[in-house]
Nucleic acid binder design. Structure first.
Length: 879
RNA sequence: GCGAAGGUGGCGGAAUGGGUAGACGCACUGGAUUUAGGUUCCAGCGCCGCAAGGCAUGGGGGUUCGAAUCCCUUCCUUCGCACCA
């Protein structure tokens, strides 16, 4: 056995061994005795951007640890890998380099696949898929058509960002400070026809079934529930007349109990009433235009000053008939509710500010436990629930009573009723882009929008186009666009839009079960593997990707394609990978960022940081704190460098050890060194035991030993081994892999300290104790290797084989998980902690067999206790 | 503004049910090995204090024999966002 730890060689050998044996190929097992439970472990598939980043390494290492652990625990595990291969960056790269997106994408996939393989992930590569292949996206098209048939896909206009110079639609990301990223031209809004998926039809179920996901983080479920946004309220019609016609201005409110305090109404700039009022009033028209400028992004809208303008139109209060003026408010969202609100300044903070600003009346109608009310300044309790006052016949009613009574009265008058409103909106999937799934529709002058027949699927995306930034190249490619109408045969045009890439990622986890099936979208294998038992990915996908995937799964269930309600049983959202940011500010205020690898840290005698200098010139650099790894801050670390310098095992070990999976992880070069040191120590200890003259492993690893007669040193070692094992099993169960690693480190420390004992015993005449010592060591090391295997599979694979464990237990991949020997946990004496009035006062050793009374006597007689109990002890708590 | 998560040594982080705060690792210090640097090994390492002991889990208060852990309050950080009517 090599005395030097050589990760390159052992990692290559391990991978070759796994490849040869097809160790990670996953096959469906027929029902029957001996059938293992299945475990589908999936990490979010990567976008093939060029090369792996640390976030990928972390994500896939977490998934791999779970995968390998479950294999050892007797599960039939599937861990596949795929590529989220459509998207904007490929088009951007194409523009920059003049290379078609397809070529760029496939090259990136090839490189990144190599990188993933070099990290030794236990992936079944036979199930690999890429969403840009026709064999995959044809089923996007197929399901789109099924949804169209069922009314789950429909067409309507939607608003997009328009770059007037490039004549192209821009993604939000391509709008920088209201201007096109390439042209710098102020962005305009444009209404264009788009296809929508009716996700709102599933709002109720998407919300309700969150309760059936105990394996999801509460945080994510809360976010989804808020996004779906179910609210119970009342839809109220404010009557008015327009051109002699009786009409209703509809608003939605969750505070119908405050209706008697409504003193104005406000509508969105896009509201029909606003448009009507603007026609005869140029000032109003200008205000409406002003509101329509600015960004589509609603987050930015939140930062705007609240502004309004009266329309000069009046509506009647639905209960009192009082005249109420209608305003246009830039804070009213057209997309939510009715695009209009009733203004209740008395009990809504925003309405209060609005009324103050524009001198509108404020009318308090709710009394909250007699707390004072003054229109001078807003107080938090004004918005609280209370009893109606100043509200005529509703006086004295509480929230629910008032809402019920008012809703009933409105219903009688035909002016409103209770209503449930959702925040969730339908999903617009049309993208005016080239590198995506073509939407399978043909536009015919006489037949209208005609679905492409199933027999003509897939509508194949040409792979040789190079976009130039001025619109969708598909629309300018006659060979793609021109075709005959499937219905009447006359010349017609293909839909040039492609689908949102979220469509691709909404069901790839299902396709992994049957990636080679070319007759249908799914087959029987899906029933075996779905649902995904464990899904792992970044928190940034907490809402959109996960919600769309849940929606698609439910649609596919409706079509009989899957039999599950929810795609992901358990979800783990991993934290981001951070690194320190270093910079220098030049005299002209320009900032240069330096990669942490180029920076040397200075410490004082106590280990405190006193500064940082650039290695190249020895002069100081400033720290800008810790941030996510990014190009702009030049604080990234390339995983490839790490793998080449230390090997995959060290990279994986550090990733798992530095922090628990769900927390952010701070990069640390010296932490990586520490991980590498640990693996070298492990290797050195094993090589020492194997190579020394009295080879401990010479007689095999068969351990049919009775440890009952073992000496204290053996018992101590076994106590560490087995108590740590029990902690590690607990930590594997709660995905706390950092303490799994620390457990393995503890075991190695104990084994290292124990190693000389084996030698000392030799020749002492006590041969049986020597055997027991060797056995305890062999047992401890065997346990330690298995504990560590999911994290660092290569080195443990090599040691397992070289030391002879494989001969006894079989390949480490499927070796049985070690069991805790309860007998090893038993100790004759226990250390007790003595507390007086909750304060630690001393320690005491006592026989384990001692009873409560005996312990009390011992404790009360103890120096550490008597010193503090001149008075009388009232209670004693035995720890 | 709203929502969520979080704040523990010089640093990353442990502490499973309210019961020894700081496991494991990094950094640092001293020593051994080495021609030297690096590596490796041994020892030390929360703060104050000569010691006894005291003080310590963002700050303040509370519950409890006992609080990092539970409650109230406050400050700060990070993430998400949709002025949600």
């Amino acid at each position: 056995m090599q005395t030097q730890y050589d990760p390159k060689t052992i990692e290559r050998e391990a991978r070759e061994h796994w490849d040869r044996s097809g160790a990670f190929r996953a096959a469906e097992e027929p029902p029957g005795p001996g059938r293992r439970p299945k475990f589908y472990c999936l990490s979010m598939f990567p976008y093939p951007s060029g090369k792996l980043h640390m976030g990928h390494v972390r994500n896939y290492t977490i998934g791999d640890v779970m995968t390998r652990f479950h294999r050892m625990r007797g599960y039939n595990v599937l861990q596949p890998m795929g590529w989220d291969a459509f998207g904007l960056p490929a088009e951007n790269a194409a523009m920059a380099n003049g290379v078609p997106p397809a070529k760029w994408t496939y090259e990136n996939i090839a490189y990144m696949k190599k990188q993933l393989q070099s990290l030794g992930f236990a992936i079944d590569w036979e199930r690999e898929l890429a969403t840009c292949s026709p064999g995959y996206y044809r089923w996007n098209q197929w399901l789109f058509l099924r949804m169209l048939e069922r009314g789950l896909v429909y067409k309507k206009t939607g608003v997009v960002n328009w770059d007037p110079m490039d004549q192209t639609v821009l993604a939000n990301e391509q709008v920088i400070d209201g201007r096109g990223w390439r042209t710098g031209a102020p962005v305009e809004k444009r209404e264009i026809p788009m296809y929508y998926m009716r996700i709102t039809a599933y709002a109720e179920e998407l919300l309700a079934s969150l309760d059936q996901l105990p394996g999801w983080p509460e945080r994510v479920k809360t976010m989804q529930a808020n996004w779906i946004g179910k609210s119970h309220g009342v839809n109220i019609g404010f009557p008015y007349e327009l051109g002699g016609e009786k009409k209703l201005l509809r608003v939605f409110t969750t505070r119908a109990d405050t209706l008697m305090g409504a003193t104005f109404c406000a509508v969105a700039a896009e509201h029909a009433l606003a448009a009507h009022a603007a026609r005869s009033n140029p000032k109003l028209a200008a205000f409406v235009e002003e509101c329509k400028r600015g960004s589509v992004m609603e987050a930015e809208l939140a930062l705007l000053d609240k502004k309004g303008m009266p329309t000069g139109l009046f509506v009647a209060h639905p209960i009192t008939g009082e005249k109420i003026e209608v305003w246009i408010g830039n804070y009213v969202l057209m997309a939510y509710g009715e695009g209009a609100v009733m203004g209740v300044p008395g009990h809504d903070e925003r309405d209060f500010a609005f009324a103050k600003k524009y001198g509108l009346p404020i009318k308090p109608v709710i009394d909250v436990e007699g707390k004072p009310y003054s229109t001078d300044a807003w107080q938090p309790w004004y918005a609280a629930y209370g009893r109606c006052v100043n509200s005529g016949k509703y006086n004295g009613l509480d929230y629910q009573g008032a809402v019920d009574a008012i809703a009933a009265d409105l219903k009688t008058k035909g002016l409103g009723d209770k209503q449930v409103t959702w925040r969730l909106r339908d999903w617009g999937i049309s993208r005016q882009r080239y590198w995506g799934t073509p939407i399978p529709i043909v536009h015919c002058a006489s037949c209208g929008d005609v679905p492409v027949p199933d027999s003509e699927l897939p509508v194949v995306l040409p792979e040789d186009l190079v976009p130039d930034g001025t619109g969708n190249p598909l629309a300018k490619t006659p060979s793609f666009v021109n075709r005959s109408c499937p219905k009447c045969g006359k010349p017609a045009k293909r839909e040039p839009d492609t689908m949102d890439t979220f469509v691709d990622s909404s069901w790839y986890f299902i396709r992994h079960a049957c990636p080679d099936q070319n007759k249908s979208m799914v087959d029987e294998r899906v029933k075996y593997w779905m649902p995904v038992d464990q899904y792992i990915g970044g928190i940034e996908h907490a809402i959109l990707h996960l919600l769309y995937s849940r929606f698609w799964t439910k649609v596919m269930r409706e079509l009989g394609l899957v039999s599950v309600d929810e795609p992901f049983t358990r979800l783990l959202t991993q934290g981001m990978v951070l690194n320190e940011i270093f910079y220098r500010k030049a005299s002209d205020a320009r900032i240069t960022y330096y990669n942490p690898a180029e920076v040397e840290l200075k410490h004082d005698d106590k280990g405190q940081r006193v500064g940082a200098v650039l290695r190249s010139d020895g002069k100081p650099v400033e720290s800008d704190g810790i941030g996510t790894m990014s190009k702009s801050k030049n604080n990234g670390v390339d995983p490839q460098d790490l793998i080449e310098k230390y090997g995959a095992d060290t990279a994986r070990l550090f990733m798992m050890f530095a922090s628990p999976p769900e927390q952010t992880l701070e990069w640390s070069d010296s932490g990586v060194e520490g991980g590498s040191r640990f693996l070298r120590r492990l290797w050195a200890l094993c090589a020492e035991m194997k190579n020394r003259s009295n080879d401990v492993f010479a007689s095999g690893t068969d351990l049919k030993v009775d440890f009952g007669a073992a000496g204290e040193d053996v018992k101590a070692l076994r106590f560490v081994t087995h108590s740590t094992l029990s902690q590690v099993v607990f930590d594997y169960g709660r995905y706390q892999y950092n303490t799994v690693v620390s457990g393995a480190m503890k075991m190695l420390n104990a084994l290292e300290a124990f190693e000389p004992h084996i030698g000392v015993a030799r020749g002492s005449g006590n041969e049986s104790n020597l055997t027991l010592r060797a056995a305890a060591f062999i047992e401890g090391l065997g346990i330690m290797l298995r504990v560590l295997y999911p994290v660092t599979p290569h080195i443990t694979n090599a040691l397992w084989k070289d030391l002879g464990y494989a001969a006894q237990y079989g390949d480490l991949v499927t070796a049985p998980w070690p069991t805790v020997d309860e007998a090893a946990l038993e100790q004759d004496e226990v250390e007790l902690v003595l507390q007086v009035n909750g304060k630690l006062r001393g320690h005491m050793r006592a026989p384990k067999s001692a009873g409560r009374e005996q312990l009390e006597q011992l404790a009360l007689a103890h120096d550490a206790v008597t010193r503090y109990t001149s008075g009388q002890a009232v209670k004693k708590v035995v720890v």
